[in-house]
């Protein structure tokens, strides 16, 4: 029943990209606007009050630093996973993708510890606008991580059957998932200094 849509595995010779790749870049553009709006909200709120705390005084910088390293490492492994497919090595792909997933779970675990410590001290979004924007931005970022985990786990598990039937299309999917993952990583690279180090 499926309609035959062109350029799902091979790039359009005129534009040089597949449909999915153009789509994911457009989606990421809209994500930039989403996080951009939240960062501008942070700037506006910060400029509006005199008693905005320094992130390094109230947030756990060592844990966040570990998380930064974890995320950057996962960005490397997700590229390696894609490169493995390019070299037609499914086994290596699975290793690197599993590593990526492991890193994402470690990230979320550390995040949960951080949140738990705040909650146990009675700190919530209602405490002050600094914590409110901290919880909203890191929370939304956490949801993006969770979304990435679901996609990556699918591509590692049941989704990988496509490798046998349509290897090029599958490699394209991994590339798109990787682009998304890099974006989520990049958001953290902005978020970490702005929230924790300033």
């Amino acid at each position: 029943m499926a309609v035959h849509i062109p350029y799902i595995d091979k790039p359009n010779p005129v534009t040089g990209v597949t449909n999915a790749k153009l789509g994911i870049w457009l989606f990421l553009a809209s994500e930039v606007m989403l996080f951009g709006a939240l960062f501008s909200a942070l700037i506006t709120l910060r400029l509006g009050v005199s008693d905005w705390p320094h992130g390094y005084d109230v947030l756990n910088v060592p844990l966040a630093t570990v998380n930064t390293v974890v995320l950057i490492f996962s960005s490397v492994t997700v590229v390696m996973a894609w490169a493995a497919l390019k070299m037609h090595n499914l086994k290596q792909f699975k290793t690197y993708m599993s590593l990526t997933l492991l890193m994402s779970f470690i990230f979320l675990g550390i995040k949960a510890v951080e949140y738990g410590k705040k909650f146990s001290h009675g700190i919530s979004p209602a405490t002050s606008n600094f914590y409110a924007i901290y919880f909203v931005i890191t929370g939304l970022h956490g949801l993006h991580i969770l979304g990435g985990i679901i996609v990556n786990a699918y591509l590692l598990g049941p989704g990988s059957h496509m490798w046998k039937s349509e290897p090029e299309r599958f490699t394209g999917r991994i590339e798109c998932a990787g682009l998304y993952w890099h974006f989520v990583d990049l958001v953290w690279i902005f978020l970490f200094p702005i929230l924790y180090l300033l």
Partner: peptide, 25 residues
Amino acid sequence: LLLAFPPLEGAAILQLADRVFGSSF
């Protein structure tokens, strides 16, 4: 739509936080 709607989505999340979690954005 692609570039202008996300800021409203962000704003809607902030207003939800104000209403549900008691923040004061």
